[in-house]
Design a protein around this nucleic acid. Structure first.
Lengths: 343, 343
DNA sequence: TCAAAAGTGTTATCCTTACACCCATGT
DNA sequence: ACATGGGTGTAAGGATAACACTTTTGA
């Protein structure tokens, strides 16, 4: 108590998952950074890893956390952020400090930011990346991903079997079922974080192995080097520190928000066809939608209004162009695009 | 950029809105603290203000933020926390630093924690307080509060009229309507934070006046002392720093969560009657529910199961006792108690 | 016997979901 | 002509919200 009262100051990092929809695919802004974590003592070539952009919070310069975030993002990327939402504040020692220099304990505040896609990459250091590159199992637009049936379920099954008590086995089994569905339980596209954390705890994701190795090194114990995983068996491209966890939080939150807030429009150009809008929602939520019902919902829900113009598209009848109808916000308490699977 | 890269460390405060339902009323744990903010230069008697309990985060002692929170809460209050959820991280300069000693910039992480009510107050410093003492306009169980019609709407009307441009007036009007309902727009019990922030910005809440005074003092300008507000016109009991904002966030979040997560049960004793459960939901959400439909929803939804025992209650037929059915979590993706007004 | 609360049954309505079908344009 | 996407109508099913009514206890 008395010791805890001493003011212990820490550094605050602001991390952003900056999202845009490009070519009907969900993208996130990533940075390729030289990997300091891996392979140093092993003398490997200094490989690069992907990470989310981040910057420090300087209380002397910025009045609020969000202003601080917008500050360095606009400096570094020349993007203009629309919707910005705070996700979560992580202070974890294990996943963060294990990868930092000694004594560099930091707390990180994760943000979700939406922006309209521009043609060119925002800067030389940054690039837009299809987020399913990091979360291949989250894309159900072509039906249930083979990866789940072929790799994830079998490996989870092994992990469940490895339990030390029957209770643990039951818990693990329930959790896997809840996360990935099965039998009579449907896929819930919002549980992105829960799934990632499950895979992490089951040691199936590269960050888990990396962190275990780091922890073992810190404690001076040896760590049994796991067998090389083939690229097909690698569950998505890993990221620096706990950035993939932050991204998982962002995706899950955005998928949820879509349903009761008109946030898709932050990702769309000023005018669009209904199919373009549908494709954007599908890209983010990772599932296909029923065309006719989507249109009805969106139109009769007052979310959009026709501009009167037509889109000059290839292949097919020209579609009417719509724009976001700002007034919904004044009318309905929770206007959003309800997502019901099936296409 | 270069200056911002210098690591600026800050102190982290963990704030908790610890909630319990006692006698069918929603309570929050508060601390009476001597008010250093008000009346110092005015030589007033050092009045006390209510505040939320908080403690510092010591990264050397605790592995995660939540562990740190649980640590000092259990030290200080001897309560055992059940469900704990992170709410938001505030780094605001204006609302926080204005009230702190110079240079004491801190970032605070707000938490919502649920616990079962015990008979006695958790310690001498702390007390359970009906949260509607701080938010009288949030209690609609006796119909729409007079306070809204008598005080809030007229004062908001004045604030709207005081706008400097027609656009601002329209925005203010829309916002007030969205927050407090009206005409064809129903009351939305989840918008607790939005309402508090509106009242703050309209200068109707004591914290707003306090902060303006502080800011004026800091800049050396004079601040026009507002007319004394009568206790009837005071909009709820104010709190220290931005604690009422944190509490507003907590209430709103809990009201929302009720609907898709079985969190009410964290506030209930192990077994309860359906009416007791309903009263708890009503207490938290601030609206009355339709009895028959509530029962059907809860029973047929598989949220509870009968214990087979009866409650020995005063007045009326004895009711069957139920308990939370843990297995719902394995069956339904989003089990909760949907709330639809009316009683 | 009455008040208070527990319970049961039924119906109208709306929303969701699915299916069937026609329309306009480019190749 | 046909492929592609745009656009309309409607009917089945389920969930919700409202209503009326019976039952069991304590005072």
């Amino acid at each position: 108590m008395s010791a805890a009262k001493k003011s212990q100051r820490v550094e605050i990092g602001l991390h952003a998952a900056i999202v845009a929809v490009i070519d009907e695919l969900p993208h996130v802004l990533v940075v390729r950074r030289p990997s300091q974590e891996n392979g140093q003592e092993k003398g490997e070539a200094c490989a690069a890893v992907y990470g989310l952009p981040f910057g420090p919070f300087d209380p002397a310069l910025h009045r609020t956390l969000e202003i601080g975030l917008r500050g360095w993002v606009e400096d570094q990327t020349s993007l203009s952020l629309g919707y910005v939402e705070q996700l979560y504040t992580f202070g974890d020692k294990d996943r963060f400090e294990a990868n930092s220099a000694e004594g560099e304990r930091a707390v990180s505040v994760g943000y979700l930011a939406l922006t309209r896609a521009e043609d060119k990459p925002p800067s030389t250091d940054n690039m837009w990346q299809n987020w399913y590159f990091h979360f291949p199992w989250e894309d159900w637009r072509e039906g249930d991903p083979e990866l789940i049936a072929e790799v994830i379920r079998p490996k989870l099954e092994t992990w469940i079997q490895e339990s030390e008590t029957p209770e643990q086995e039951a818990r693990r089994n329930d959790r896997a079922r809840l996360c990935f569905g099965g039998e009579d339980l449907a896929w819930d596209e919002e549980k992105v974080l829960e799934r990632y954390e499950l895979l992490y705890e089951a040691g199936l994701v590269e960050e888990a192995i990396r962190d275990q190795r780091m922890q073992a090194a810190a404690m001076g114990t040896s760590f049994p080097e796991p067998p090389e995983t083939s690229p097909e068996e690698k569950l998505g491209e890993p990221m620096q520190f706990d950035h993939r966890r932050i991204l998982a939080t962002a995706i899950g939150r955005l998928r949820g928000k879509l349903k009761y807030r008109p946030v898709v429009f932050e990702l769309m150009p000023p005018s669009f066809t209904l199919l373009e809008l549908q494709k954007a929602v599908e890209a983010v939520s990772g599932v296909n939608l029923h065309k006719q019902n989507f249109r009805r919902l969106v139109e009769s829900g007052g979310l959009v209004e026709p501009t009167g113009k037509q889109s000059s598209r290839s292949g097919g009848r020209p579609a009417a162009l719509f724009e976001f109808r700002r007034d919904v916000l004044k009318e309905r308490p929770a206007p959003g695009v309800r997502v019901h699977g099936r296409g």
